[in-house]
Design a binder for these strands. Structure first.
Length: 263
DNA sequence: ACCTAAACCTGGGCGC
DNA sequence: TGCGCCCAGGTTTAGG
């Protein structure tokens, strides 16, 4: 479910509901989301901790605790952060402010870690960072011989972009997903840089994409699915040329594009 | 370095 | 209703 815009939307909803609160109890319904540490140990470390802030790094949320420790969440494909439980809750955190934070995850691809200090995540640059210029994009892409679509999904190269926004950005930039990342022209690196920022900002503006599992911290759907131009639109007319949007499998992921508009 | 396939999992949707 | 199949916003690992 969650790419950068969805995670950011969730963070903005969760923060005001947990900021300044202390975690009183932790209930673990399914321990498989909790990584690197045993459930009992996790509870022991987390209970009693005060939450100061939530930082987002790519698709990760880092809960900054008053002790200097960090509680880190990755939502995988179907992870949710809720304050009213749904039927897929796996871990819940009862807070001193009367609320309970529910971590829901139907497919169990989500991950929760406890870190003693600020974690070193092996991630490429944040695409919405002010310092992330088109020249920087060119710099990191021009050493990659693989396809541009696969590279955009590689979190070590550029972080936060997932399958939906990669498809949308390549359509907006008019670039075929199978082009070699190092073979784009300067004009194309510029267009792609703009397109990535545009689709991510639009995703945030519309509160994320709710094609299937994604809801925000209040349990509400986003609406960017109503603005998608190619993702999930196999067989539909292209919004630019009225040709047909096609779907192929590329890099083991559904890849949507317009063969006429993307070169 | 790169490429592919498979693995981790469950659930929704669709055709029959 | 039910079954089988395909699909899924992500990431990691193994092998060639």
């Amino acid at each position: 479910m969650p790419e950068l815009p969805e995670v950011e939307t969730i963070r903005r909803g969760v923060l005001p509901r947990v900021k300044g609160a202390t975690i009183r109890t932790v209930e673990i319904i399914d321990h498989r989301n909790i990584k690197k540490i045993k459930p009992a140990e996790f509870k022991k470390k987390v209970v009693g901790q005060k939450i100061l802030d939530i930082e987002r790094r790519a698709k990760y949320q880092l809960f900054k605790l008053a002790s200097g420790n960090y509680l880190v969440f990755h939502l995988g494909m179907t992870g949710r952060m809720l304050f009213s439980p749904d039927k897929y809750v796996k871990v819940s955190f009862k807070l001193s402010n009367g609320r309970t934070l529910y971590f829901s995850d139907a497919r169990l691809f989500g991950k929760i870690w406890f870190y003693d200090k600020y974690p070193e995540l092996k991630l490429g640059p944040e695409p919405l960072d002010k310092n992330f210029t088109w020249q920087k994009l060119k710099e990191i892409l021009s050493v990659k011989k693989t396809s541009i679509k696969v590279v955009l999904l590689d979190q070590k190269v550029i972080s936060g972009v997932g399958n939906i926004y990669a498809n949308e950005a390549l359509f907006k930039a008019g670039i075929l997903p199978t082009r070699r990342a190092n073979k784009l022209t300067d004009a194309e690196y510029k267009k792609l840089h703009n397109a990535i920022a545009d689709v991510l900002n639009a995703g945030i503006k519309y509160g994320g994409t709710s094609d299937s599992w994604y809801v925000n911290a209040k349990g509400e759907k986003g609406s960017f699915q109503d603005h998608l131009l190619v993702y999930g639109r196999k067989g539909e007319p292209c919004s630019k040329c009225k040709g047909e949007v096609v779907r192929v499998s590329h890099g083991q992921r559904g890849t949507f594009y317009c063969p006429k508009c993307q070169k």
